[in-house]
Design a protein around this nucleic acid. Structure first.
Lengths: 231, 231
DNA sequence: CGTGGTTTTGAAAGTTCTCAAGATTAGTGG
DNA sequence: CCACTAATCTTGAGAACTTTCAAAACCACG
């Protein structure tokens, strides 16, 4: 056993493709997976329009996905945390549909699409998990749509923080205290608000003793209150 | 050959699961597909929380999918046209995540999820198309997210009409003139606007000679202008 | 320790919403 | 086929929320 990372000993396995696979099957999956070179903050992993040869799984760090609109502006559509898979939106026609950029130092696994397809013919659990992961992303995206459509700025930001909190918890991290790897501008863009509004609401939530914010570090003082606001 | 509908002679086949399947494979797919009883306007096909046993393909008519928020209000997340598949958001845990209701008289095909999975092990083209369809829905959902987030009410509605137009065109119908099976309130809800705003903007677009609206019937007088506005 | 990027805060300006009422359309039963 | 009722749609005016513009404070990196 080398010190290299394998699906068999990856702490994100239950969130990722191996979920539902037996140890032997996981080993099989592991053989098709490659490690990607480490990425530094601001490095771009995927350019929109590129052929989709690989899916990527986040091992550590975080990234944002975005499109560029007709005026050349970014439209952030996703933040990726460890255990997330990246690239599903390109399966329509085999071309990536968005850009993906590292928000901090980030490690990734690289999964050749073709091998994955071949293997999924053989492993029902893998097929199922692929559909589950896409379905989950679809669900998150539609939920977000509902949230943004029908909620105030404060509710949107609260929803964002609650969602982040539970994603960190799923990953074995604290759901009460975490670091925002994205800027306020990124959050604003993602939620369809202005930077100033994000800043003001963070200040408000702090005054109401729902959260505490120190630069990038967020401490949730009352998750209950935050959930109530988000509802 | 009976008069019954089969995948082999369905005009929506290229938008639906049979895309990429050979005639023999399509026939195989057809054997697992059942016809669903016709639905009338306001009939509810799917209740949120129900176990997902079937995916549904729209043959004719249209439907809306929505969730109910904590205040008991509808949040419309999708409109379904012929050729669309319904149910993908429930694959996470085998439970439907939203309600789906007919907007008019509607015919559906019923696809048992289990048989579909079994068959997809055998047919790579079916696997691929399943992923394509989900990916397409994901892409549409994220694009919409970007649109709603960063655009004005007029841009949103224009985008909605342009998207509908091209969906009708894909289905062999006119992209210049079509009937809105949903109410203004449904559109407003979907786009995160108020009914009044929808009404006002439709009037504006008419005055600017971009579209003509007579009740439910929309005629696009300048698709080019509409696209420019939507951008 | 300076420089650039990020965040915060204030005040004015816009866009969209809410409320209210009237007009039109669709659906139902006689 | 008409009349009636409920639902949908339109239009106006004031209110509310969020944005934009502007400037200062803060942080991070070389």
């Amino acid at each position: 056993m080398t010190s290299y990372i394998h699906c068999q000993n990856c702490s994100m396995a239950t969130l990722c493709l191996p979920y539902q696979l037996s140890p032997e099957q996981t080993e099989k999956l592991d053989t098709i997976i490659q490690r990607h070179r480490p990425m530094q903050k601001k490095d771009v992993l995927i350019h929109s329009g590129e052929p989709l040869k690989y899916l990527y799984a986040v091992r550590s760090g975080s990234l944002k996905s975005y499109t560029i609109d007709s005026q050349g502006d970014e439209q952030i559509i996703d933040f990726h945390l460890p255990g997330d898979l990246i690239g599903f939106d390109g399966l329509i026609d085999g071309e990536h549909r968005s850009f993906t950029q590292a928000l901090e130092t980030t490690m990734l696994c690289e999964i050749p699409m073709q091998s994955l397809d071949t293997l999924s013919a053989e492993l029902p659990g893998l097929r199922k998990q692929l559909l589950r992961l896409m379905s989950g992303e679809l669900y998150a995206s539609k939920t977000l749509l509902g949230t943004l459509n029908h909620h105030t700025a404060q509710q949107r930001l609260a929803h964002f923080l609650v969602t982040l909190s539970s994603r960190f918890q799923q990953r074995g991290l604290s759901n009460r205290e975490f670091r925002l790897s994205m800027t306020r501008a990124d959050i604003a863009n993602y939620l369809g608000l202005s930077v100033e509004t994000i800043s003001r609401i963070l200040t408000n939530l702090q005054q109401e003793e729902v959260i505490r914010v120190t630069n990038k570090l967020v401490t949730i003082e009352s998750l209950e209150k935050l959930r109530t606001i988000a509802a």
